[in-house]
Design a protein around this nucleic acid. Structure first.
Lengths: 216, 216
DNA sequence: TTAACATTCCAATAATCATTGGAATGATTA
DNA sequence: TAATCATTCCAATGATTATTGGAATGTTAA
């Protein structure tokens, strides 16, 4: 019979398999991307600015930890998170990181569009205003990601199309732009563009994963 | 000005600092121990069956990630988790691991006292029964840990003293024993002893951290 | 002040991990 | 059927990490 020590070592080792997945910056970025919906290796590689091979290797880690599943559609293999717990864990880890690491707080402050960031506590009031149509909640991610899931009342104008489609947005109401989460810079650019063009725009740091985890 | 890519790399790197902490089996074990209350390096080393030096090195990682804080009391330096978020994250990670990793499920089944384990869904009914005094909730951890925090209505008999203090327990009511969490074997031993001595005992896998995270 | 003690820091080694190139797989299309 | 394409597997590299021994730090007690 095995000693208690060996049994325990085995147990913690298994849990560490999950922890290891969240210990690499690139894997975290891939997880955040997968929070936006299923994607191919190529898409993930491009978005994360790494080679397809390296992406594949990281996805292999995710697969071996049973946190993603794959599905073949034609030539491509699509990856997706197995369930919401994985997204929740990502949110909880980066939230704790933001809470504890001053360096991260400073970096985030730098990319913020000055004091125009909405803080999470505004969630309730934001929804009320959105329901009444007092503000426009704007999703600037690629449209597939919007179609997969988006915030309540949100409209989709991908950042790439925003300049051409400015006319669709009202100038007399606040525009709240969001993207994939606090580390995605799409909404930062969108807010900069909107403000430059005379819109009153603010940046919501939440992505869909953060929003879902918060309204639990 | 830095490129968007470099900024993002920096952000994910910071978050990965937190993830790294949870990627080592021994560090996870230390975190679980710290969930029971503040402890000295020596105590932690003994409980985790590793050298004091290695313990110190792991604690250094935890300190650099700002997840623990230290306080000197006389000769000893006490370590404690900075706040409940850290314990919550530990619970969420091992819960996800148990959900996804079949190997872990199997290992846990092996150490279970046959079908005598209480599952988390029993929490509400357990509390009702405990309130009415129909069951005895028994904390078998060292008494300092019980004093630091324990489940509602729980009584403390450390495993070491259990054999001598069996007389304090009723034979006509169910005894629900718990310890530090699902990977701690104290309650397993306690249940085995109690059953052997004719008590009707069951094992609750939750520790205080799991309980607190669940009743949120 | 010194002795005793707990703990950390530094340096070194072995183990593990990230990353890349080249070959192999497996499905689709012609 | 062969050609094409996306993706994975294998092997090799350098870069981290875990772990250990020895020295150093800082506190208490005499």
């Amino acid at each position: 019979m095995k000693s208690a020590r060996k049994i325990k070592d085995l147990l913690y080792e298994q849990v560490a398999r999950i922890g290891k997945v969240f210990s690499s910056p690139k894997r975290l970025e891939l997880i955040e991307l997968l929070c936006q919906g299923e994607k191919t290796v190529e898409t993930l590689a491009k978005e994360a600015s790494i080679s397809v091979k390296l992406t594949s290797a990281h996805l292999r880690e995710l697969r071996m930890a049973q946190l993603v599943e794959t599905e073949r559609q034609g030539k491509n293999i699509y990856y997706r998170l197995v369930n919401k717990s994985v997204a929740d864990l990502w949110v909880q880890i980066h939230t704790l990181a933001e809470e504890r690491l001053i360096e991260l707080q400073l970096s985030l402050q730098k990319i913020a569009t000055q004091p125009n960031d909405l803080v999470p506590s505004d969630r309730d009031s934001l929804m009320k205003a959105a329901r009444k149509g007092e503000v426009v909640v704007l999703d600037v991610r690629p449209s597939e990601e919007y179609l997969n899931a988006h915030l309540p009342f949100a409209r989709s104008i991908p950042l790439e199309e925003l300049r051409q489609r400015l006319g669709e947005l009202p100038k007399d109401r606040a525009i709240v732009a969001y993207c994939r989460g606090p580390y995605c810079l799409l909404a930062v650019d969108a807010v900069a563009l909107l403000q430059q063009e005379g819109y009153s725009a603010v940046h919501l740091r939440d992505g869909v994963a953060e929003w879902d985890a918060a309204i639990r």
